[in-house]
Design a protein around this nucleic acid. Structure first.
Length: 580
RNA sequence: CGGGGCGUAGCGCAGUCCGGUUUAGCGCGCCUGCUUUGGGAGCAGGAGGUCCGGGGUUCGAAUCCCCGCGCCCCGACCA
């Protein structure tokens, strides 16, 4: 490719809307242009990176037996009604009518489509297991996109779906896919991507992992224990919360005027927040009951954990709703309430504490010395606590740290949610009709591209790993009209192309500074610089984007040298992947 | 959906409070010419604007008022 012909301007100045470095370079380097909120066009450099990422994904999916298919972006609403998600999913699912008034949706994920595809093709246990995948455009009408390609409404995703006769078989394949993912990220130059335990959300199923690239630019919070190797998304992370047991004391009602928050009560009574029990109301559980969540006063409720227990999205309850069960907002506790009317969810930290201060369900009054097992006997406690930096790991052997990360992939064990709802079945060895179980496995291509930029850049631009770089070599001709420069550069360009090296040739008559700055923005790992002084001494300069180091190599053997350097770089990345 | 910020040339911005010397300006970029050529050159000339849109106030609106729209950030949400 000749740079004089390359579509896409590069800017010297950082675009105002970019807060992330990767977003700024995406625009400055001529990689992508925004069309609307969360909707982008890709220019050649970005598309080339995306294609390389896709190819790595393809190779690794094929290696574990995946078969590539292509399903439609536009799907009839009936499919989503079959699974129940037409009603369950909110406005992220784009719904519209075709010209005949028939309801359609834009596919945001393809469980329905893949079951539709496979239920007519798979009839026998002999055909199981199998996995199909596609690399395709998804549209999710996100309430809030951000950070360039990190979080967008339209994006390219690899989504894979596996079908199995039983859970054990799914688990075997799940491990294989897990390994394939580790290989994919390593081959893309990001071996630091880690798998963490994650929430299954509304996907259903029990086991799920997210593949996370740790970076402050990320929007997920990851809990890590270096001592034990534990890693989990904050949404599901468990910890061991330090308890402070003491002998129970008699219950005592105290006047606490205008103390409706934990901070006010604690400071009024001269105690610590952890010596209180905090009550948080949510409207409502899956049966429509008011939810009363109780946690130690110094702690926050983890609403993702709570959502799984109440099987509904926790929404704050109104004061009227709280009063309707006899509780007093700001002074609430389960004491004296009809527990059949509410869904009581008590965290373990409350059972493990003694003599807590809690509400008296009467304005301006609290109880001292609340002890769960004595005062509200028979309550089962659960884990709804949001872990914090510094908590012990669940096994007590280490300390938890919180870090930010970007979710670049995920894998789920789905179970039979979709196959059962959509009537997919096969005949087993005994001639009995059975429902297959599924796994699903996603990777966001554009997000991976952006994330790579986010972790591999300097103050001049991105630094691409050789395996996904838009081109392998950036060829600069300094002062084209000087004796021998054009001839040498053109000759190298031809030789490199003939040798199968992907080369971007800066054939513009631009000043060196301009050429080098543009080259930095394109982030190609190896640079060849042809100039008058180099030509005179029959050398060409080979410069490394990552380190800035350079060496002069002989023009005559430059192509072989470059091929070797590329191959070495590729090998060193692949060898990391081969450890998985 | 809640909170905050912003919208003036391809990009970065000034002008907006306090309406009229602004014919809407500056830097970068772009075009032409000459010079220059190892880290974003110099000189000269030039092109490029629905000042986000629609109403209104006024002799006069980028500027004031009303109603929209869009973008960014934080939060909620994220199948």
């Amino acid at each position: 490719m000749r740079m004089s012909r390359l579509v896409g301007a590069r800017y010297k100045e950082r675009p105002a809307e970019a807060t992330l470095d990767s977003h700024a370079y995406l625009l400055r380097g001529g990689y992508a242009r925004q069309v609307a909120n969360g909707i982008y066009s890709l220019l050649p450099p970005a598309l080339r990176v995306a294609r390389k990422i896709e190819q790595i994904i393809r190779e690794e999916m094929n290696r574990i037996g995946g078969q590539e298919v292509l399903m439609p972006v536009v799907l009839p609403k009936e499919l989503w009604e079959e699974s129940g998600r037409y009603a369950a999913v909110g406005s992220e699912l784009v719904r519209f009518n075709d010209r005949t008034g028939h309801g359609m949706v834009l596919g945001m994920t393809h469980e329905e489509a893949v079951v539709h595809l496979c239920r007519n093709e798979i009839k026998s246990h002999t055909q199981l297991p199998f996995m199909v995948y596609q690399i395709q455009t998804k549209f999710r009408d996100e309430p809030r996109s951000r950070g360039g390609l990190i979080r967008v409404r339209e994006f390219t995703m690899k989504d894979a779906y596996s079908f199995h006769a039983n859970q054990a078989d799914l688990e075997v394949f799940y491990r294989e896919c897990y390994r394939a993912y580790q290989r994919i990220f390593a081959r893309a130059g990001l071996p630091q991507v880690v798998a963490v335990e994650s929430d299954t959300g509304m996907m259903g199923g029990k086991v799920a992992h997210e593949f996370i690239l740790l970076t402050d630019a990320g929007e997920d919070t990851i809990v890590i224990c270096e001592e034990t190797g534990y890693m989990a998304n904050l949404e599901v992370a468990q910890g061991h919360i330090q308890a402070y047991p003491e002998p129970p004391k008699p219950l005592e009602k105290v006047h606490t005027p205008n103390c409706s928050s934990i901070e006010e009560v604690a400071s009024f009574l001269g105690i610590l927040p952890r010596q209180t029990a905090k009550v948080v109301f949510y409207d409502q559980d899956s049966d429509g009951k008011l939810v009363m969540a109780i946690i130690r006063g110094d702690r926050e409720v983890n609403e993702a954990k709570l959502a799984r227990i109440i099987r509904a999205l926790p929404q704050p309850a109104s004061e009227e709703r709280i009063r309707s069960v006899g509780a007093e907002p700001g002074f609430a506790s389960p004491m004296g309430l009809d527990l059949d009317k509410i869904h009581l969810v008590v965290d373990h930290t409350v059972r493990e504490s003694n003599n807590l201060v809690t509400g008296a369900n009467e304005r301006d009054y609290h109880y001292r010395n609340f002890n769960l097992d004595r005062d509200v006997p028979g309550v089962e406690t659960v884990d709804i606590v949001k872990v914090q930096q510094g908590d012990f790991s669940a096994d007590g052997k280490g300390v938890l740290k919180l870090k930010r990360g970007i979710e670049v992939g995920n894998i789920f064990q789905l179970g039979d949610k979709y196959t059962r709802a959509m009537g997919m079945s096969y005949t087993d060895e005994q001639g009995k009709s059975c429902i297959p179980i599924m796994g699903c496995y996603g990777i966001g291509v554009g997000r991976l591209l952006s994330s790579t930029m986010e972790v591999y850049h300097d103050e001049h631009g991105p630094i691409w790993p050789i395996t996904i770089a838009p081109w392998q070599v950036h060829l600069n001709a300094i002062k084209m009209d000087a004796p021998g420069v054009r001839e040498t550069a053109e000759s190298l360009y031809d030789q490199l192309n003939q040798a199968g090296v992907e080369v971007l040739f800066d054939d513009r008559d631009a000043r060196p500074g301009v050429q080098f700055a543009d080259a930095d923005l394109l982030g190609i790992p190896f640079r060849l610089i042809v100039s008058e002084r180099n030509v005179k001494s029959h050398v060409v300069e080979l410069k490394y984007r990552a380190t800035g180091q350079s060496e002069n190599i002989a023009v005559d053997t430059a192509v072989q040298t470059v091929k070797k350097v590329i191959e070495n770089a590729r090998q060193s990345i692949e060898s990391v992947a081969d450890q998985y």
